[in-house]
Amino acid sequence: MAKTKEEYKDKKMMPKGQLESVGLGLTGACVAVVAIVVVALIFMVAQQGLTTFFADGIGFGSFITGQNWIPSDGRFGALPLIVGSFSVTLLSTLFTLPIALGSAIFVVEIQPGFGRKIFQPLVELLVGIPSVVYGLIGLTVVNAAMRSIFGAAAGTGAGILSGAIVLAVMILPTVTTLSIDALAAVPNAYREGSYALGCTRWQTVWHVVLKSAMPSLMTAVIMGMTRAFGETLAVQMVIGGVEKSMPAGLLDPAATLTTALTSGLSNATTGSVEYHALWSLGLILLAMSLFFILIIHLIGSKGAAKHD
């Protein structure tokens, strides 16, 4: 409990030394709880997930590259699920990015009055809508739209495209809000400098604002992707849930790592190979989100260095 020089200088603090250590204890306990939860979580998922490879004799390579997920036959190829997860994530990001970026430019550069006062609160409202609501809307509106547009080729209307559309709407508020923050964080001096050189507004936005906000924009996109990657319920309701083989097209029903994990869990008995394989899916998910977070940190520190 060594006290720093500042605390000794502050005469008022001296009689409250006891209080100080209580405060340290309380906040320290909070930190400890968070740390324990994180470490325990990673440890547990890793321990159960690795059992598949070390105790049940399923090769890691065949688990990752196998093209058929049929637990009842003892076939655990997670590739269809990995492909499903990545395709809905990337597609939804592709749908969302232009819209989010466009509205961020509108709010920050073009109509800050309307944008800041009306549009931004509206978008932030969307963040709080529970995913089951998006799923329900997807089930009734998006799936029906797919059926009427593509006819019998769309089957029930459930598939990768439906999943990506629902996810795109879900991550839109996150990406938009973070993009607005990113653009607003560009120092005004940059814009003024650009105008002083005779650049038009478009040139300023394109070459100066977007360029210097790039690291934060990347972070916005990756935050959106993280949410899309981990989303379960809404996707489960609209993607069709077919895990057995590789999806062959955007209208094909598929499954993601998260949907396979949730629906598999109700049928797997504890200690069975299937149960361990589901934990392995969890391990892949965990590894992916750690990877996303790592990228955010890398971009963040790089961006900070640039602005300084």
Binding site: L139, A152, G155, Q236, G241, V242, K244, P253
Partner: peptide
């Protein structure tokens, strides 16, 4: 066969009711 797959695999009987009702030829 591995090559064949259904158009959807549902988690509950309730969704089956809904999907069959909505999907032509199901």
């Amino acid at each position: 066969p591995d090559s064949w797959k259904p158009v959807a695999e549902e988690d509950s009987s309730g969704t089956v009711v809904e999907k069959v009702q909505q999907t032509e030829g199901s």
